[in-house]
Design a protein around this nucleic acid. Structure first.
Lengths: 221, 221
DNA sequence: TCCAGGTTTTAGGGATAACTAAAAATACCA
DNA sequence: TGGTATTTTTAGTTATCCCTAAAACCTGGA
């Protein structure tokens, strides 16, 4: 990405806030996440402050204002509807639509987005399992938990993959952990991120699964 | 439009060249067509010259180089495929997709465009009847003529509407002159632009039709 | 032929977003 | 508490693409 728009900054701040609730977002995190120099972030944040979209405390970080959060949610909505639209119409791999949506999300008109929303039947989650804000920017709450926190023996259903990284998504695809997949935790390594699960679908496959903290699941009984 | 990209300039030069074959495109025509000040055009044209995309003679005008024409055709291809894609998938009115495509055409990846092309079955004309360059930028030639030039009594098939103007397209839609519509010339006013045609579809409707020069047709017997 | 009017170019700025390098502030550790 | 290391900000440029105003250039009529 070479030129990052104000919308990109807002969306990224929202995602980073969600990843670390209650914390303000540091300039460094933003810069790294957007592949931009820290100095560029300082400059852009000043613009966002002028627009009343973020509160900013020098040397500490930024937080979205209500207005800024609204803007960010709008971008997120566009992003996720476009992803789903591409998956549905062109049968594209859900690990590949992210970059396309990232570009298109900034140029679709409200009218077009409305039509896409209607075409898709007003969905509440996108292909990654991430929630899609509705036209009034409300999110259908889901009470999922982190796969890393689930005890051995539990039966679960994959609800959501918290990651936009293409490599990770392709890995997820390969091992068959799409949203909707049923699975059972066979054992887990409490040390942290390595976990062994058995998939229920198509016979019992064993697999070691790293980065379980990036997968959200729902109880299945 | 507030910021016009180099791609927009190239595409517009191509369209203006096609409208007036053999002529070079004047700065004024470009400026008017892109809703930009003449001084802005002079500046941008210098950039395009540096990139070897146009030949430019001061106080005369610009012409696309072969390389520039290739670039412009690529943009045109993207534009028309996207228009058709929106019409097909979202059942959008073909008089309304132009503006959307205008924005999206600059951000779709080659991969996505390939998929859209395949999804549409490698079409050769867009919803307006305009030819779509194929992946190698070739156009399927069609030997259509201008409705304004056709004598009374001829049976014709609408091949193409040469116009991006939303009002005109909606008028065309209203009187039922989509590409593919069969019609017969009942009489014509040689004075110029007013012409009376009868549509074959659904009984014989009479209508006075202005701006016949903006409609291309093919012989029907 | 010459001048008036239209067209095009030059000159000088403005907005957005990025960068590097250096200075300032903060955090951490001994 | 002092000093180093990290983070953040400031300052100064760059690159795109826009504008207005004024100068330069062409063209056509008297």
């Amino acid at each position: 990405m070479h030129n990052v728009s104000q919308e990109d900054y807002l969306k990224r701040i929202l995602l980073l806030e969600q990843a670390e609730p209650g914390q303000s977002v540091s300039m460094g995190a933003l810069a790294g996440s957007l592949s931009v120099a820290p100095a560029s972030v300082t400059g852009m944040v000043k613009t966002l402050v002028r627009r009343n979209w973020v509160d900013y405390e020098p040397y500490v970080g930024v937080r979205l204002t209500d207005e800024g959060r609204g803007q960010a949610m709008r971008v997120l909505r566009r992003h996720r509807l476009i992803e789903l639209f591409l998956v549905r119409t062109l049968d594209m791999d859900w690990s590949l639509v992210h970059k396309e949506a990232e570009a298109i999300e900034h140029v679709v008109s409200d009218d077009l987005l409305e039509r896409i929303d209607a075409f898709l039947g007003y969905p509440t989650v996108d292909p990654h399992g991430d929630p899609i804000p509705d036209a009034r920017l409300r999110i259908t709450s889901n009470d999922s938990e982190c796969l890393a926190d689930c005890e051995a023996g539990r039966r679960l259903c994959v609800a959501r993959i918290i990651d936009q990284d293409s490599d990770f998504l392709q890995y997820i695809e390969k091992v068959g952990l799409k949203p909707g997949t049923n699975l059972k935790v066979v054992s887990r390594d409490d040390g942290g991120q390595v976990m062994e699960v058995r998939l229920q679908r198509g016979g019992s496959t064993m697999l070691a699964f790293t980065a379980a903290s990036r997968v959200l699941v729902e109880s299945r009984d």
